[in-house]
Nucleic acid binder design. Sequence first.
RNA 1: GGGCGAUUAGCUCAGGGGGAGAGCGCUUCCUUCACACGGAAGAAGUCGUAGGUUCAAAUCCUACAUCGCCCACCA
Length: 884
Amino acid sequence: MSEMPKGYDPKAVEGAIFSAWQAGGYFSAKIVEGVEPYSVVIPPPNVTGSLHMGHALNNTIQDVVVRRARMQGRPTRWVVGTDHAGIATQNKVEQKIAAEGKTRQDVGREAFIEECWEWRRLYGGTIIGQLKAMGCSCDYDNERFTMDPSYQVAVRKVFVDWFEKGLVYRGNRIINWCPRCSTALSDIEVEHEDVDSHLWHLRYPLKEPVGGIDHVVVATTRPETMLGDTCIAVHPDDERYKALVGSTVILPLVGREIPIVADDYVDPAFGSGAVKVTPAHDPNDFEIGERHDCAKINLMNADATIADEGGAYAGLDRYEARKRVIADLDAAGALVKIDEHVHSVGHCYRCHTVIEPWLSDQWFVDMKPLAAPAIEAVRDGRVSFHPKRWENVYFHWMENIRDWCISRQLWWGHRIPVFYCDACGWTGASMDDLAECPTCSAAVRQDEDVLDTWFSSQLWPFATLGWPDETPEDIAYFYPTNVLSTARDILFLWVARMVMSGMYFNEGTIPFDDVIIHPTVFNAEGRRMSKSLGTGVDPLDLMEHYGADGMRFGLMLQVTGNQDIKFAEDKLLSSRNFANKIWNASRFVMMNLEGFSAGEPVAETVADRWILSRLANLSAVVDEGLTAYEFGETARALYDFFWNEFCDWYIELAKSRLSGGNAEQRLAVQRILVYVLDTALRLLHPMMPFVTEEIWRNLPLAEEDRAPSLMIAPWPDSAELSRFADTGAEASIAAVQEIVVAIRAVRARYGVSPRTKLDVVVKAPEHEMLLVEGESALIRSLAGVGTLAVSPDAEKPAHSAVATAGSLEIYVPLEGLVDFDAERDRLGKEREKAGVELDRLNKKLGNEGFLAKAAPEIVEKDRARAAELTDALAVLDVQLAELA
RNA sequence: GGGCGAUUAGCUCAGGGGGAGAGCGCUUCCUUCACACGGAAGAAGUCGUAGGUUCAAAUCCUACAUCGCCCACCA
């Protein structure tokens, strides 16, 4: 190990380390009765997907919590797999066969589905391979897929159960139709966007004038739908129209006679106060139509061209029809005016085509009964969100939940297990495929549609564990899972539904205790990362530049509880450098192990007690941070400890003892170095698994501290480490640091070479003498001091630069070099600063309210600080007087 | 229309009632036997605006401004 390369090279290490983990079998968990398990299910990436920054962040978070749990000795299982992603996959395969000049109808249902499976065989493993490159410690031996045979059984059981309980039902409703994907979508799969459009005011003539009125004006954003109008609605209290209710208008262009009805829905203040009602093409109009028993004329084909009901406009695309209808209305004198108008238009979340509200027969889930217990579970804290504010978002949605349209007019997916008998009218859901009607024995046909992909994803936490009957022992042991980490955009699509179905099918047991809603990763300009827009960053490129550990740690540094991430690549740069720092600090320790034998670390010096105390503090901070899912804070604590305390100070403090001390002293410091490094590597491992593993496997540990891999080595016990806490040592080293920095500053100010030894005189009050003398070796070695003379009544040597550290006066003789004007300026500034602070403190300490009401320890602290400043000011005054 | 978050150093962001912090960038010096992906020393901020609470406000409250996001049956 003495020939560790000079720099850390991730590429040379990561592959071999990963293979070793895999060969060791550490990714899988065995059931150990009586030991508390830890389980996490990965949000299954789409089988069509490749790793993006959201995945990189989310899966690092999961790997961090999973690796810590595993090191804590818990049987730990991170379920991994992919989602069949109905629309996305079907689109990919359709593109593929389109290149061969074919449509899916040309290929046929069965062959098309086979093409989908083939596509998955060829490309479905991409993202799993990328997770491995990141070092994610998933259970790869038990990879799941939402179309696995056992998963299909689970999906079918859920559907049949809900069907039989009446929670799944067939309805003829307005749903969201994507004309490009040619399928229904649920409400939350529609993305609304404000669009600049117009409000067209149309004049509809009355069949018979009423009280001198011969027409009504209606306002619409969708003039083409007027072809399907079947009534006009006004508010019942609207004086302008009261007399017209019950009379008839003649629909322009069409000539159909339709009634004027009164309905509370209408807002008299909007537009003209009269609404054209098209029940087949607008959810509100549908409701009005239901209340007034109006016809529902379906004007649109599945591809959003006008249907035969549209008469002269039949066959036109919806936007072409709009143009023609407006032109024709204008020609007929029915177009009153056009206003500018911004309104929200729904788009398909998969292909961004404008959604058509469309009347059709679909399957729905009755959500209210499912939502009630799931609301309660969050309300009473069985499930908690991190950050907590997302609970309000969850409540708001769940309390206003609407029924879920689950049927999709696709081929790739879980086919709806409902069978119809055309002979006798029997309809039923069945776990087994049926050939004949159970009532009349006639041939039956299966529903053509498949289920919403989210219908199957909602079962992920228990279907992947073998529910309902494949591996009941896994369910019993690993369910509920401990934490679910995900992006906020699938809070409703996925998380809420997992809580509902998870509780329903597991006797009310929640699917996970904690939900982490992680920040969204935006690009440096704050825009959404998008492959198609070219605004994204590829995690694979980042790993190429910074290593997997560099990327992971750089992401962790950016995670905070309340802010999205504007991706800052400089954090990855400093993380890569951090990995290299860890590497080289370790290399230094390894290179200085002559005569080493493993053994208990025994603190012999203040420095030893200090670093052990700081290590104990780090361990506590990391435990608290990870328990609270505060990844950014935890990463910073690790970075600060390792770099600023261990490398910058302890290793420097250790050097003189390593090279100058006797064998016993050397062994003592070696044992502290190895112990601190060992513990720090364990604490760092969840965030930086590769570099820590590579170093740790070569650490010369005692047999009882060894493990086949750092990945399964015991996690540091912060309670046990707390025995090292030592505030005295921390104060002493803080003082040493202050003196060293003051001397170094003198050196830097006068450009004295680091190789030139300085002779330093310190004037210290009696109570500081012991410290300075006791640690004089440290001070001399760290500040490059030759002789260090300390006394309470030291005289300032001639030609000295001066520095202060609290009540210490530090004289650095620099023959001929000292610029007394510059010294005076600098000390003057220091004095001014100290003076301002002391004035502020004195004012505070003279304030009766402060003395009476502030916490005593605050007052005490301020008094101590004031005394310190008074001393420092006195020192500065003396020095300034000498320079005058 | 309702809700949430943000506004702190040139940039990206932590912090969260009592001495303004980090990374990157910048300035000066240093290739000293772990590391130049390094070391040392520095410069740099009226903590968005206006009120309020408090002995004490960057931190809590209210309003406003700006930016971002979510929800809502905005003909």
